[in-house]
């Protein structure tokens, strides 16, 4: 379809200043993330990790500076890159309690432009016994696995992850580490807000102590 648009190869952050209300979170932030690379976004609680991810995803407007997405031919239009090229995994997962896991995964895969083969995503996160349960009956870790399955159900290059590992058990953390490595090997990009180091070689971006 629009393969060139979705094929983000570089994420560049230039002189980015972000404020929430009257409070300035960070100023003059610079960073670059290229194809096949992962970056660990660290910082104290309240330093602005989640806000930075939401700025990149286009939900918060920065005070100044720019977020640029590029493919092989040059800069992309930001709206197109966001609506076709990136995933955001946040604390609020957007899953409706009253719908079944299958209905929700199927809907989000389609909304994000997935081609409808969910079996790999379901298998990877061992979701098959849970697919017919209502989301309200899932534990925090199971819900997170369902949210993670969306990353595979609709392939997109840039993953913005907000503490993706937090509710997962040890076995599932190892599984997701494999998934991230495979994504990088296929030319993906990962920017993850974390407190523990990511299980792979990464660049790092520290937002400091916060307030």
């Amino acid at each position: 379809m629009t393969d060139h648009a979705t094929n983000i190869r570089l994420l560049a952050i230039n002189d980015l200043t972000v404020a929430r209300g009257d409070r300035r979170l960070f100023a003059g932030l610079k960073a670059q993330l290229a194809q096949g690379e992962a970056m660990a976004l660290t910082g104290a609680n309240g330093a602005g990790k989640t806000s930075l991810l939401r700025v990149i995803a286009g939900m918060i407007r920065p005070v100044s500076g720019e977020v640029r997405f590029e493919n092989e031919t040059g800069p992309l239009e930001a709206d197109a890159a966001r609506s076709e090229g990136l995933h955001l995994l946040a604390h609020l997962d957007g899953l409706k309690p009253g719908r079944t896991a299958r209905e929700e995964l199927d809907f989000w895969a389609r909304w994000m432009g997935g081609e409808g083969d969910l079996s790999r995503a379901i298998e990877t996160f061992s979701l098959s016994p849970l697919m017919d349960l209502e989301v309200r009956k899932l534990s925090a870790g199971q819900r997170r696995r369902l949210a993670l399955a969306r990353l595979l159900a609709a392939p997109r290059k840039l993953w913005l992850l907000d503490e993706p590992m937090a509710p997962l058990d040890a076995a599932m953390r190892a599984r997701f580490a494999e998934v991230m490595k495979a994504h990088l090997a296929e030319g993906g990009l990962i920017l993850a807000a974390v407190h523990d180091p990511l299980p792979m070689t990464t660049g790092s971006l520290d937002l400091g102590a916060g307030r």
Binding site: A57, L86, L88, L92, D93, G94, W108, W111, G113
Partner: peptide, 14 residues
Amino acid sequence: EDGALDLLTLGSPG
């Protein structure tokens, strides 16, 4: 409230 609106902005229809 549940974050679905955020994700709706990331679909290609807009």
